[in-house]
Write a protein that binds this DNA or RNA. Structure first.
Lengths: 194, 194
DNA sequence: TCGTTCATTGAATATGTATTCAATATACAA
DNA sequence: TTGTATATTGAATACATATTCAATGAACGA
């Protein structure tokens, strides 16, 4: 393994460790020394990889933004056109919940993005997080569902915001209590169904 | 107005100012000097009223806990027995949304309690917030609704958590965007309906 | 093998901000 | 009116912790 690859590995290890700690204890309660100890590495070395704690956070947020973008332009999103909107959303949630169960960092990423979006974290990171917009994507889908007659009437944007607020809330609940069972996706999609 | 009453007024002013700032900028980004300037009063005087920033936060959380307890034991809660569970929940949400529109601190309190519950804030406050448990209250209500045949089958606790996660998420969304219209309560209650 | 570059350390430093404090003004009780 | 308690101020302090730095060790190419 080349030196560069080593470094990249180490970088990822730091990112994942920081993600876990930020979500478990909160950004401000997580000290650089905590992350360093958990990786593990010396405090000083952390700054060899990330120039500041805030940059580390911002890098995580960038990852989150990428991930979210992938969701709304990847192959799964292409399938959107082919199946009824309600089916698509149920399938999407099913996948999200089961994927997150296997890869807990996905949970953590959801939670982190939510926390950053709301504030309680540095400005820089918040700006970065603003780049993601699942609301519009789903709103389009909801409008399609309304035409198909499978979704209830109402402002698609507002419905979309409610939908995502619920998903976000539930992901956060699940992140807090790892034992919590995933809800039936139909429960959530019901929000949209007449 | 007596001296004691004056003090009590001032105390409340500080609490409300802090609540707004904590929610707008986050607990850690809100400096004692910010709160002092907004009240307004000198920095030093803050400590005449609250012995520390953390105590101030904890007092707010105590208020939130009281408020939530009131919701689940007040006269409205008594009405629970008399009307169908779905009707009751819709009415409850309707009241919550319209009340919060008039009294924005209610929004803020919701958001603060959520943030504290999840972490990202001092331990002491989190412990205090743990005292509130709307989940169980609503779970009982949901079980009742299931007997009445108006709610879908499923673990009442899990359904209750999903219900509250949605409400929490939506309240946070509304707190972030004051322009946002309140959703139709029926959308949310749909989570529980077969 | 040697010299250069990168990785690593942990203690020293710098900085931001919660908290304290000594001084002053204001209200109240006797 | 006078004395005591309380309210108020803003600058000084204390402290926590992010960040720097000088020194050491390991890898790698020539």
């Amino acid at each position: 393994m080349t030196r560069k690859e080593q470094k990249e590995e180490r970088r990822k290890a730091i990112l994942m460790t920081a993600l876990t700690l930020f979500v478990e204890k909160g950004y401000y309660d997580t000290k650089i020394t905590d992350i360093a100890a958990a990786v593990p590495m010396s405090t000083g070395l952390m700054f060899h990889y990330f120039e500041s704690k805030e940059v580390l956070l911002t890098e995580l947020v960038k990852m989150g933004v990428e991930g979210t973008k992938a969701l709304s332009s990847g192959p799964a999103a292409q399938a959107m056109a082919d199946i009824p909107a309600d089916q698509y959303l149920k399938g999407f949630l099913q996948q999200l919940f089961s994927y997150a169960k296997e890869q807990p960092w996905v949970f953590n990423m959801f939670v982190l993005m939510g926390q950053v979006r709301r504030s309680g974290m540095p400005e820089e990171a918040r700006k970065e997080a603003a780049a993601v917009n699942s609301i519009d994507f789903t709103a389009t889908l909801i409008a399609k569902g309304q035409k198909e007659g499978v979704f209830r009437a109402g402002d698609p944007i507002l419905l979309s915001r409610c939908f995502w607020a619920s998903v976000q809330g539930i992901m956060e609940e699940m992140a807090m209590d790892k034992e919590m069972e995933a809800p039936d996706p139909r429960w959530i999609v019901s929000i949209l169904i007449p």
